[in-house]
Design a protein around this nucleic acid. Structure first.
Lengths: 153, 153
DNA sequence: TGACAATAGTCGTCATAACAAGTAATATCG
DNA sequence: CGATATTACTTGTTATGACGACTATTGTCA
């Protein structure tokens, strides 16, 4: 039952449990995919976190979203959305305006620049994704998705 | 085929592909597990990265390992092992000595303090892991591991 | 052997993440 | 209606990560 990860991370001890092996495999795979995504994003000068925000804002359309809503929708939870948005505003990828209805809320929207950037990224990212996962057939991917969803209940 | 992640991250657009859905599920699941591990480690004042290094060094035993070997064995690739070890040395979790055979190499070993700390962590981390993955049976975990290994070729 | 390349690690610098405390606006409730 | 709680976001500070340039030691080969 000792999987290939054993050799891959050159661990001298065997895994204590299959749960530990599963966890390490999830972490390692996430890291590998993240690295290939980073490689695509790097020439465009944005991080995965920023890309994720742009995706969320593109999905939200012209209504925009509050800081809190953006935080909730992010894949990796970021405890400091404010300064993330600061940087993106400086790069003119987004705009921020205080809402008139509830003046505590700041509404963030994607700009034309941001939209253009993320639209450009669709193709290369999709290609990178196929590089990473294209060799797995759809049935297996469906099984994988089911299992991962099961983990998160 | 639209999975639960759809609702979970409140995306307004459907997934473009099953590959994208798989990737997001891997990333999300890795993040969830990482967060629960962080929660365990936090009271002990070390990060997951540092924990990972301690595990590697415990596995290596009294021979210790070079900077490069540590870097290779880490789950998430860290481009700056030197300063990571600087911090750990300051916390007396490790020792570092220049090797006599090849004077370019710095041999890092775990200290008694480091060993004590990581031994203490075994139980709570195992408990956290069971909290995260205990409800999935071994056969399903084995399938998951196979699929993830397949992704990484 | 002596120049050049490769390897191992360090350091400078800037960007980002993490944690905690603070400020302003709105909601709640006696 | 006014004190208190809650919400939404901001800011200060420290730690960590990312990227590249740099130093020392060892290996290679003409």
């Amino acid at each position: 039952m000792a999987g290939k990860l054993q050799a891959e991370i050159a661990q001298s001890k065997p895994f204590e449990s299959i749960e530990a092996e599963a966890m390490l495999n999830i972490a390692k795979t996430a890291d590998v995919i993240a690295q290939s995504m980073d490689a695509v994003l790097k020439p465009y000068g944005i991080s995965q976190t920023q890309y994720n925000v742009l995706r969320i804002l593109r999905g939200a359309g012209s209504d925009g979203l509050s800081c809190r809503q953006i935080g909730e929708r992010m894949i990796a939870h970021d405890p400091d959305v404010t300064r993330l948005l600061d940087r993106m505003e400086k790069a003119t990828l987004i705009t921020r305006d205080r809402a008139t209805t509830d003046r505590r809320v700041v509404v963030t929207k994607i700009t034309a620049t941001g939209l253009k950037l993320i639209d450009q990224l669709d193709k290369p990212l999709d290609a990178s994704l196929h590089e990473s996962l294209g060799h797995i057939n759809k049935k297996k991917l469906a099984t994988l998705i089911d299992l991962l969803e099961l983990i998160r209940k």
